[in-house]
């Protein structure tokens, strides 16, 4: 177990270090997120009487769309540099490789969110942040990284690669988006954590289920 966690940590730290040096993924995700929020702002500004009503949708769509940029890169970079074979040849449990890559993608998306949320508070001129909202955003992001990482490994083996990823990923992410948007609306309207419990349970169950399925199937995705 200790060895397993070590492997996960080594992979995670490797990806974070690459990112700290190049800043490729974070820069494109963050710039994309700002652009998305601005586009939404112009799309709704004249027709929506109170812009704060669109915040939940803007938040979750922006996170999803910018997140997919990072997820797409997760395995493409390994494949293109030929380091994927190296990873697979290492005498370690392959699911540890998955968890390392998944956690790295999770960290990237969380960092983008940490940058996006204050920005949205300023742009929409409302403080909509609350602890339960951050919690459901975290759980939703986790589910997104869990499914997104395995699909990223899957898409990298296809001819169309990153074009295919959103098509594969979005229909499966729908329950998380529905639950996330609903809960965000609830918290903005002053509902308590208890009122929104079913949406939490849904996302939580989604996360657990797909962590297990990803753990069981990752071997089949990368085997050659």
């Amino acid at each position: 177990m200790k060895h397993y966690l070590q492997v996960v940590w080594v992979i995670l730290w490797k990806d974070l270090r690459i990112e700290l040096r190049s800043k490729d993924v974070f820069t494109s995700m963050a710039v994309f997120a700002v652009l998305a929020v601005m586009i939404f702002n112009f799309a709704f500004e004249l027709r929506v009487p109170d812009k704060t009503v669109v915040i939940p949708g803007v938040l979750w769509v922006t996170v999803t769309f910018s997140g997919i940029l990072g997820l797409g890169r997760a395995f493409i970079s390994e494949k293109d540099r030929g380091s994927m074979a190296g990873l697979l040849l290492a005498p370690v449990d392959r699911s540890a490789i998955y968890f390392g890559k998944m956690l790295a993608s999770l960290v990237f998306i969380l960092v983008v969110e940490a940058f996006l949320l204050p920005l949205m508070v300023v742009f929409f001129n409302t403080n909509f942040l609350s602890l339960p909202l951050l919690l459901i955003l975290f759980l939703g992001t986790l589910g997104f990284a869990v499914v997104g990482s395995i699909f990223s490994a899957l898409a990298v083996n296809t001819r169309t690669r990153e074009i295919l990823l959103p098509v594969l990923l979005f229909p499966i992410m729908l329950p998380v988006l529905m639950a996330g948007i609903r809960a965000t609306i609830g918290f903005m309207e002053g509902d308590t954590l208890a009122d929104m419990m079913k949406w939490f349970r849904l996302i939580f169950f989604f996360d657990i289920l797909y962590v297990v399925v990803a753990y069981l199937t990752f071997d089949y995705v990368v085997e050659e």
Binding site: V147, T158, Y220, E223
Partner: peptide, 16 residues
């Protein structure tokens, strides 16, 4: 192989 993995993910998302 990859289609089988996706088929499993896809079906499990239906009840959710």
């Amino acid at each position: 192989r990859l289609a089988a993995v996706y088929g499993i993910f896809a079906f499990l998302s239906v009840p959710l």
